[in-house]
Nucleic acid binder design. Structure first.
Lengths: 193, 193
DNA sequence: TCGATTCTGGAGAGGACGTTCTAGTTGTCA
DNA sequence: TGACAACTAGAACGTCCTCTCCAGAATCGA
């Protein structure tokens, strides 16, 4: 075709992630451009807008995060499966501080209206697979799936561990958090019995 | 002395709080000024900078929030006292959505370097009273106070319920969250036995 | 009533940031 | 080798926001 890219999308996303660790929501296109040693125009050659760039970064981080959740969902015993989901959250944030920080940049509902339509279609369903798996595991754990039980499972296995870990994201997350997350999760899940 | 104030500090803080519900961290001085129907210059007459204004708002919200925690700390039975602390969090956020939203504007560590020195001295000790009370209740609950137990108590009675409620702040918080917070808290606190 | 003092009102300087535009560069294919 | 496509480079534009400045208005004590 033509001239090969000097800056790939992945490189730019990596730079955006690293810049976000430092500047978080205050990260500018200039910050990102400096990290890849490019002018801002080159960033705009690949991403139509700032929101599209950071939206892509957010989506990539969420997808990477979901991988561990899907693995945990494969565990036979539903109780152990849910504990593994809870534990995955502090672990992922400990091992991938940059991606974890990127997850905190947006909430899905705030992001959707800001991004181009094509990206929106992709992001609107980003939680579907993990949600379906969680429903399946929840049904197995309680015998019968109800809406209340599903909401408890969602709060217990995701919201609660995430809320515990969130203020530490980007920095060090003590090992003790793994057990603490599981304990909180099980306290919540017991309400569904 | 002289001409009385048309816009009091409290009025301006209320306006800032209401504007923050709508615009959150994107709230500008203009947003605040529009709500009190004043020019931006009048805001700067009372607050030396944007950070000083929102820092004051944040501190006011935190202090209001702490009142309920201090009340809960007065309960005799330490187990019941800690459950009351946990429950206070969804309740406060439900009954004071604006102040709760204002609490999410900063983290103390991010705010301190931004504000004028006088304000900094005041804010640096803002958690001291609730921390002391929590230490006291923790000692009673476990018989002996250790650092690990205090950290568990902090996570259980504050961080965890706050993390659960946080994404809902500003909107409606279902009553069910009160019991869910308590269940998660007790799961965490049991680790210290 | 007169000054002193405290505040309001509003315009605008100064700066940062997202985005655009165009010229130039580098590689590919015929 | 020449035309074309994809990409880089970076200056520049428009917008928005914080903060400043100063003229004028309102109140109080003497």
């Amino acid at each position: 075709m033509a001239r090969p890219a000097k800056f790939t999308s992945e490189q730019i996303l990596d730079a955006a992630r690293d810049a976000a660790v430092e500047h978080w929501r205050g990260t500018t296109i200039t910050h990102v451009a400096e990290r890849v040693d490019a002018p801002t125009g080159s960033i705009y050659h690949r991403f139509p807008s700032r929101d599209a760039l950071f939206g892509s970064l957010w989506a990539r981080s969420i997808r990477r995060f979901h991988q561990g959740l899907l693995l945990a969902a494969e565990i036979e015993d539903p109780q152990a499966s849910m504990a593994a989901m809870a534990r995955h959250i502090p672990r992922y944030c400990r091992e991938n501080p940059g991606d974890a920080k990127a997850m905190t940049l947006y909430r899905l509902s705030d992001l959707l209206p800001k991004i181009p339509a094509e990206q929106r279609a992709e992001l609107a369903t980003i939680n579907d697979d993990v949600d379906a798996e969680l429903r399946r595991v929840t049904a197995r754990r309680y015998g019968r799936l109800t809406d209340r039980r599903y909401r408890l499972a969602l709060l217990g296995t995701r919201q609660c561990p995430y809320g515990l870990v969130r203020p530490l994201i980007g920095g060090e997350i003590p090992r003790a958090f793994d057990a603490i997350c599981v304990a909180a999760t099980e306290g919540i899940l017991a309400l569904g019995d």
